[in-house]
Amino acid sequence: MAADVIHLDARGLEPPQPMIRIVEALEALPAGAELHARTDRNPVHLHPFLAERGFLGNSTAAPDHEYGFLTIIRRAG
């Protein structure tokens, strides 16, 4: 069965608002679900916090001809 996916569009926001929105969304992320977050830039400040708070994340350039980056995050373990 496919995992629940929460989509978050954090584009158009000035740093650090995208990071705040993403981390706040992660606080409520159900077990087994994934957060798919869109940002204008590669969220380089985010990744140390993901590791620290027990999440795994991967950022890539948006794959669907949209601008920005897509970061897929799930709980570790």
């Binding site: 590669n42 380089v44 990744h47 140390p48 993901l50 590791a51 999440f55 795994l56 994340g57 991967n58 950022s59 890539t60 350039a61 948006a62 601008y67 920005g68 970061t71």
Partner: peptide, 12 residues
């Protein structure tokens, strides 16, 4: 259009 080259980075 996106000028950045596709790159990947992650906590994993």
């Amino acid at each position: 259009a996106r000028a950045d080259a596709p790159r990947s980075s992650g906590s994993a």
